[in-house]
Amino acid sequence: MAEIPKEEYILPTTSACAGCSSSLCLRYILKASGPDTVLVIPACCTSVIQGMYPRTAVNVPVYNIAFAAAAACASGMSAAFRALGKKTNVIVYAGDGGTVDIGLQSLSGAFERETDFLYLCYDNEAYGNTGMQRSGATPVGARTTTTPAGKAHSRKDIEQIVEAHRPPYLATACSAYPTDLFSKVKKALTLPGSTFIHILAPCPTGWKFPPGKTIEMGKLAVKTGMWVLYEREYGKLAISAPSKAAMATPLPLADYLSPQGRFKGITPDQVQELEREIAARRERLLREAA
């Protein structure tokens, strides 16, 4: 484990909600990338968290861009830096809406072109910046302001969508495991081409749990198997240590669902559907990792 640098690139002036996990993630991401980095940010919580003009809480250049355009903007930026002979890291930091929904086309194009950049999706499983509407990443049964009776459909598997582009590196992470995130970002940035990390970012505001339980909620997601930590380098899958343990003896799913207000009212059928999803993913990943 590389030592985590003391330098801070997120200054203590963010406008994040109490208990926000995405600003925590960004702190470790920038510690991993160092200062020769540009963040490309589409519309997402980080559009606000970074602070309002004329102040900024981020001590690397932040390029804000339209919702659907982050990967394309990063494409041009990366090409320009390389043309100028610069190795500057181009990192997209986008929410689940900007990744699995409105930004999916430009993400796909950038990965197909093997753009030299790192795409990070911090996933709070809904459109958080506009007050928690459903996204393609919202799990079945979760209540959002646009699925007040609970979401009827399962979430998209963005990891398999990205995997279909055969990137050199694809990983998952979670805000509750910052050193794991740190080392995955480090590794992604050493590899050429398009790399992707999907980060679960529990959201106390949207998921309706107390702000003090953000880390606990992330750990429960991993321990119940709702979220699996792994990395895939040139196609070769390795399940990360916290998930290896969890997959052997998972906690009951109810431990994760019941503390969250968004799952109040989830039907037994929907719980079963989530369990089926968990089991299918577990089986697939274990088979591939073997």
């Binding site: 490309v40 390029y63 861009i65 339209a66 659907a68 355009a69 990967a71 394309a72 903007c73 990063a74 494409s75 041009g76 930026m77 990366s78 090409a79 320009a80 830096f81 390389r82 043309a83 100028l84 610069k86 086309q105 430009s106 796909s108 194009g109 197909e112 072109r113």
Partner: peptide
Amino acid sequence: QATYIPVESEHSAMAACIGASATGIRT
């Protein structure tokens, strides 16, 4: 000598030009 980026849409064409131009390169 330019880098030609064959983007997947016009929205991305302009977004890529924006990202590139922001570095100070002609686009």
